[in-house]
Amino acid sequence: MSTTTTVDRPFRADLLTLDPPRLLGSRCSACGTTTFPPRGFCPGCRSGAELETVPLTTEGRICSFTVVRQAPPGVEVPYVLAQVDLPSDEVRLMATVVGVAPERVALDQPVALELHPVGTADDGTTLLGYRFRAHPEEVAA
């Protein structure tokens, strides 16, 4: 009987790092535009300038959101899906939001990045994805 040690890994290595837990974006050396997910071109200036892979801020706020009550078979509902703005990077992305009851979610609410298991690879490794968690003090308020 053999034992195997497995280490968690991102569900997509191009999107996030685990230590520290950060989303990865690309930043344009010409105009400073940051994008998520990382891209091979800058949608801000399309100049062909070099893009640098950068870790993104973990602090966001809710641009808009919905409580999904019906989804295709196999998807558990309800869940909160949001467009999350990362103001310091000027990046908007879509993600689920946890840590707040659906009826308490609000526009402009602050949220923070968190990684969570989204599946298991063929070799038994836990795959980590990303979502956002509402700030506890905001929920209590």
């Binding site: 569900f11 997509r12 999107l15 997910p37 641009c63 808009s64 959101f65 919905t66 999904v68 019906q70 989804a71 295709p72 998807v75 869940y79 899906l81 949001a82 467009q83 879509m94 993600a95 689920t96 526009l107 989204v118 994805g129 979502r131």
Partner: peptide, 23 residues
């Protein structure tokens, strides 16, 4: 598509559009 990985369904996109539009 990455949207599929985070639980996107078409109705959700339009719901977020509606909420922002109202605000």
């Amino acid at each position: 598509d990455l949207d599929a990985a985070v639980g996107y369904v078409m109705a959700a996109g339009h719901a977020m559009s509606a909420r922002r539009y109202m605000a």
